[in-house]
Amino acid sequence: MTSIVVLGSTNMDLVAYVAKAPARGETVTGREFRTVPGGKGANQAVAAARAGADVSMIGAVGADEFGSRLRAALEHSGVDTDLLRTSEGPSGTAHIVVDDEGGNAIVVVPGANATVTSLDHGDEALIATADALLLQLELPLSAVTAGAVTARGLGVRTVLTPAPAQPLPNELLAATDLLVPNEHEAATLTGLADPHAAAEALLRKVPEVVVTLGAAGSLYAARGAKPLVVPAPRVRAVDTTAAGDTFVGALAVALGEGRPVPQALAWASAAAALSVQRPGASSSMPYRTEIDTAFDPTHARRDDRDDRQEADAV
């Protein structure tokens, strides 16, 4: 079984569903409100665990009711939380508005996540047991960089989701094996709107890049190899929150199992496509049997830059 450690955020998502998101200064009436366990780190941990990996979480929750619920939700999905810290003060929260098109706008308040500034006792030993370390940018950069450098020194594959997008220190990039931005994050990191050009630019800093393209699928680029675009399944989205995290978690599992890159991308896209058809973040993530059923191996053999689907699936 693939072993994955996630060093990342854990938030409670406070989600309001509306017909149309409010403009600045505008008040609208929502039709529903939910609290759903989330955070990019926890989302990727749940996605990987449900996809069939042995997953452990490093991060922090607050000493509040949300913290207890977040820890319980991770454990319910099979994620080990022995090294998930409890910090004084509130847990992290994400305030999300989801419109009828499935789009979202998000404000993240870090809470306990901000206290994770470095690796703690036992973290390095846990990372040493992993096939891959998953990282995002909702923890302080000092901790993310420390995790990546430690993993690189231990020979553990590092997978970085650069979200929320921000300038990345050279030390972090030098310790990253696979960078997985979406097309907007890739543009922010490089100043290049075209995903292919952005991926090429990013390859000067990391050996492998996967740019997720929403409804168009995903673009894989590696040094010395021809770029590959694998399309996403054709679906109608209900809520795209955490679709990218679902993709990354499933991709890490597929790569850890030794699947060829095209097949791994298609399998991860199938997982993400399932998630966008359900509301919520971690609550929308599919289990391995569902992914296997939805997986279309013909997608792993296609390379079509102009393919467009009906809804964002990654």
Rank of each mutant, 00 (worst) to 15 (best):
V107C: 10
L135K: 07
A130Y: 00
G102Q: 08
G155F: 15
L119F: 06
A128G: 05
V144E: 10
V109F: 01
A130N: 00
A94E: 00
H76Y: 01
Q136W: 02
A163H: 06
A132E: 01
T86G: 08
L154E: 02
L84P: 04
T150P: 11
V97W: 05
A112D: 09
G102D: 12
L74C: 01
A73V: 00
S87G: 07
D82H: 10
S142E: 02
P167H: 12
D80W: 01
R152W: 14
A128D: 04
D120I: 07
Q136C: 05
G122S: 04
E124D: 07
G147Y: 01
A105Q: 15
L137R: 01
L135T: 03
P110K: 15
G92M: 13
E101T: 12
A128P: 06
V144M: 11
G155P: 10
G102W: 09
T161H: 02
I127A: 14
N104L: 15
A165H: 10
D120G: 04
H95T: 07
N113Y: 14
A130I: 15
L141S: 10
P110W: 12
E88R: 10
V149T: 07
A151G: 13
T145F: 07
A151M: 08
D123P: 15
H121C: 03
S87F: 05
E124Y: 10
A165K: 03
A132S: 09
D100W: 04
E138M: 11
H121A: 09
L135M: 06
P110L: 14
D82W: 01
S77C: 01
G89E: 08
Q136E: 08
T115N: 06
T81E: 14
I106K: 15
G122P: 07
A112C: 07
L137G: 03
N113F: 09
A112N: 11
S142Y: 09
D100A: 10
V149N: 05
V108Y: 06
N113W: 13
D82R: 14
